[in-house]
Design a binder for these strands. Sequence first.
DNA 1: GACCAGGCACATC
DNA 2: GATGTGCATGGT
Length: 222
Amino acid sequence: MKTDLKEIYDLLFETLGPQHWWPAETPFEVIVGAVLVQNTNWQNVRQAIDALRAEELLDPHKIAELEMETLETLIRPAGYFRIKARRLRAVVDWLIEQCDGELDELFRRPTAELRKQLLAVHGVGPETADSILLYAGNLPVFVVDAYTIRIFTRHGWADAADTDYHRLQERIETLLPRDTQLFNEFHAMIVSIGKTYCKKSSPRCEDCPLRSKLPPGGAIEI
DNA sequence: GACCAGGCACATC
DNA sequence: GATGTGCATGGT
């Protein structure tokens, strides 16, 4: 990848400005959102989180004590509600077991170790773990998601045949200053670009701030 | 009515 | 180790 990623970051930041992510009031709310947003539109997730908030349930102990059926009903708008209810429970049970829900304590652990522990929790894969580390823990970990892979592939910054999560993550982390706030903004801006200009079905490169960074023949089809 | 959205676990080869 | 499939709601 010959691309100067910091230059891409600067270009995006000049165009889009700060994204103020993650849209949540507390680190625990970030964790809940990270599970609920799996393969789902944020708009749907917000409805589920609002329902939890309305019942004052945005607390690990309270979610741990809920009947599964109640939890399923509350998070229903987020989709996959049976699966996500189980995953959310697995996460809060783990949080309580590990630190009694005291997240500050949790995030003081060495990042690599904590990441490995998170990945061992049912329902927490690489993207969810990294979203939690970056946006709840303020730790300098880059979150790779479907938009990252699509945008990087279409611009030829990543080989379409090699979009392995950890390899792409390591390359991006190596090519940028390891800075929490920078990783925060970069991922958020990638999602913004992805939603607006780099849809799965149709790229609208003519309007995209990154259009000047396309390869000579235009976007690479994936 | 089809398509899509800020993944993951599990089965099968 | 790679690839395929189920999971579910709400917006466009």
